[in-house]
């Protein structure tokens, strides 16, 4: 009886089960070899090192954006009909009207100013140049300090926005303008 059972255990079904296992193993090994042959790599990926001469980010600003920023920066909507024109050399010419109400009377005077933007030690530097109000140039020795203060304030304001947007490790490389736009190139100095 036992002999008959052992004999039955070595039937073709038993061999078939063994073969099935071997077949699955063989197919799995083939698949593994296929994956290894196509995906396996001994080397590392090339390391991209930062190039100090190449910007990581290029910001292009249209005149409409600057105009909106200037109008928003003066509370109460005092600036009207503002136009912004870019000139070469990082110069931005701004024109418009200042409007204010005094004793129920609305007073309005045209103004124009030119400012030059440049990169200085990784930050944006704003220098306010010629300022005209009601057609009269208001640059004088007495006002020069005020203009410098205005430039400093504008520099601080713009750099604060830049740090908020780009992070503290952003380094402004250069600022250029053509007749249509202003382009700021920067890189990150962090790791």
């Amino acid at each position: 009886m036992q002999s008959s059972f052992q004999s039955a255990d070595r039937t073709p079904i038993g061999f078939g089960c063994g073969g099935c296992g071997c077949g699955m193993l063989l197919a799995a090994l083939t698949l593994a070899v296929l994956v290894m042959a196509t995906a396996s790599t001994g080397g590392a990926l090339p390391v991209v090192k930062p190039d100090p001469a190449r910007p990581d980010i290029v910001i292009t600003v249209q005149d409409a954006f600057i105009k909106q920023a200037i109008v928003r920066s003066v509370p109460g909507g005092a600036l009207k009909d503002v136009t912004v024109k870019f000139q070469t050399g990082g110069v931005i010419a701004i024109q418009g009207r200042v409007e204010t109400t005094l004793l129920g009377q609305t007073l309005s005077a045209p103004f124009s100013l030119a400012m030059r933007l440049a990169a200085q030690n990784g930050r944006l530097r704003v220098d306010v140049g010629k300022v005209e109000v009601a057609g009269n140039e208001v640059v004088s020795a007495a006002l020069q300090g005020t203009l410098e203060g205005l430039g400093d304030q504008a520099s601080q304001m713009i750099n604060k926005e830049l740090v908020a947007g780009l992070g503290g490790d952003a380094y402004i490389m250069d600022v250029t303008t053509d007749d249509r736009r202003m382009i700021v190139r920067a890189r990150w100095t962090g790791p």
Binding site: T11, G16, G18, G19, L26, L31
Partner: peptide, 15 residues
Amino acid sequence: WLGLLIGLLAGMFLC
């Protein structure tokens, strides 16, 4: 042998 062969093929097919 036939059982072994069929099993082998079936295993590969399953995988």
